[in-house]
């Protein structure tokens, strides 16, 4: 039986691991290689490296980080953040990434998803999106896609975008809900479930994990295929093993 995946996410700024609260207040805390080894030994199911500097500052260091990590750990690695072109994606996959996650650039130019998928297959092509609940002048809440590290509301509707991304060739969705991100108050169960039911590709829930119970709820009520978390793992509040034990005791299919 396919296990639900538990995925630590490491935000990387110019080659160093950081973790922000609500996107803007980052604390430097770690070497990506040591972190990767730690999570590999802890039986994390996958690792996500997210280059938070790249969207607006330039990039290039990330491929080297991936190359060094792939030398020491034997697990799937996804890289996101600042991938603007097929060449960016190619460099990261050639460095050893299993999958690449496109975000802002795909909103501006959706063909990017098709290009990566055509070259590396649906299995290597991930759409990451930063979603938020917003109210316009009419007071009606809408789910919108944000870009550039959550700074810019694109006006694009979340549900329409995930379906389009699947049609263009995405093989997985990482849904990061900004209202929840960094709060450790729990994932957005409603939005995650809606997205998971709207597509036929796997959905990774992101944003808001503060406890194993939050992960249980997003994998069950939120219908997510995987749960991604940063702070609770990064600050050692819980280990991956503790989360998995909690989930397994409650009947969630988990790889121990």
């Amino acid at each position: 039986m396919l296990a639900k995946r538990i995925i630590p996410c490491l935000d990387v700024d110019r080659g160093r691991v950081v973790k922000g609260v609500k996107f803007f207040d980052h604390v430097d805390a770690g070497d990506p290689i040591e972190q990767a080894i730690f999570y590999d030994r802890g039986h994390a199911d996958e690792l996500v490296f997210y280059d938070i500097s790249a969207s607006h500052e330039g990039r290039g260091i990330m491929a080297e980080v991936v190359r060094r990590v792939a030398e020491v750990v034997f697990m799937p690695i996804t890289v996101g953040g600042g991938i603007r072109t097929l060449e960016d994606a190619t460099a990261l996959i050639q460095a050893g990434a299993e999958k690449v996650s496109v975000n802002s650039a795909a909103v501006k130019r959706p063909e990017l998803i098709r290009e990566i998928s055509a070259k590396f297959g649906r299995c290597a092509t991930v759409l990451g999106l930063d979603a938020n609940r917003v109210k316009d002048g009419d007071g009606i809440e809408r789910w919108r896609v944000f870009v550039n590290g959550g700074r810019v509301d694109t006006g694009v509707e979340v549900m329409a975008w995930v379906k389009e991304a699947q049609a263009l060739g995405a093989g997985e969705i990482v849904l990061n809900v900004m209202n929840a991100d960094g709060t450790q108050a729990g994932y957005d169960l409603e939005m995650t479930a809606a997205v998971s039911e709207a597509v036929t590709i796997p959905v990774v829930a992101s944003g808001g994990a503060g406890s194993p119970e939050h992960m249980l709820r997003v994998l069950q009520e939120g219908k997510a295929d995987a749960a991604l978390a940063a702070s609770i793992f990064h600050f050692r509040t819980y280990s991956v093993g503790q989360v998995k034990e909690y989930l397994a005791e409650r009947g969630v299919p988990i790889r121990r």
């Binding site: 039986m1 396919l2 296990a3 639900k4 995946r5 199911d45 996958e46 649906r122 299995c123 093989g171 997985e172 036929t200 590709i201 796997p202 959905v203 295929d225 995987a226 790889r255």
Partner: peptide, 17 residues
């Protein structure tokens, strides 16, 4: 298996036994 009755996600992605 992404069609009924299973309606599972495809790609099959992750750890399986």
């Amino acid at each position: 298996v992404d069609a009924p009755p299973h309606q599972l996600k495809v790609p099959h992605m992750g750890w399986n036994s």
